[in-house]
Amino acid sequence: MASAAKKPAPQPTKTRKKRSHEPAKAELLDFYRDMLLIRRFEEKAGQLYGMGLIAGFCHLYIGQEAVVVGVQSALDSDDQVITGYRDHGHMLACGMEARGVMAELTGRAAGYSKGKGGSMHMFSREKNFFGGHGIVGAPAPIGAGLAFANRYRGSDAVCVTYFGDGASNQGQVYEAFNMASLWKLPVVFVIENNQYAMGTSVARASAETEFSKRGISFEIPGEQVDGMDVLAVRKAAHKAIERARAGDGPYILEMKTYRYRGHSMSDPAKYRTREEVQDVREHHDPIEMLKKRLLDAGHATEDSLKAIEKEVREVVNDAAEFSQSSPEPEPDELWTDVLVEARRS
């Protein structure tokens, strides 16, 4: 790959959807629906957790919805997505079914991993969603590897690799940065800076608190984005993804965002004040901000938005119902999927 940097831009492997930085009305309504779906889905997951129907670690995405919805709107179906363990929102944004995600959370056979992965380990080859990884920082080199495969095949698909402010202090992230830049891999690193790595604030854990600068030593440009504003996210993501697609290498998007809930369901979040959370909810909520924009621009009425809300609730309730009524995996499933059975060639 030493000559990769000198290679011409990859040839488009499919007809790319034309996008502008500024989404049109219909797309804005999709954003609203998608963010609301994630919000209501996560609220329901929290509720089911409280009822003992979901177990283990369960990390909710509430508050961060604009990040994944805005980035996803700039991707095509052959582009890949990979993230860490706070992954429910990413899966829904990728178009994975709410039923399959919720059924995985309840450990049922109809879940995306047949009940064997749980909250942190879900995948969809069909939707090019590559997990769902429980090891902090692991998505960075794996995502670079997915991008490497695109380059190897001469495809112009791009891999979006998400990780958090906490993962940004892992060494493997920088190993991935180095190779991604050295080989000009088509990868966009999206750092979801929700201010807290579990209970440790960014200021207490990071010598350089501006994560967009973390690529400087590797000549990877980056920028900070208001991750609560879905339109700002979309605009920045579109630019970074098209840059990577054109063969200009990796880019870092630091999304300034906030999670309303604890790190996981068992986290009482004593490390921050109630007022801090309340302030974000009241003044910077991504869904409320988009709602106001839609209403102000006359793209929607209270009634039309209520209709979306109703539709979303139906999807979530259906998923919750499905996740409780569908069966647990058969005992035989214990022994399947350890190895792929070899096909003699």
Binding site: K116, M122, F123, G131
Partner: peptide, 10 residues
């Protein structure tokens, strides 16, 4: 990962 993905991710 193969196991955790229910057989999807070889």
């Amino acid at each position: 990962t193969l196991y955790m993905s229910g057989g999807q991710m070889g």
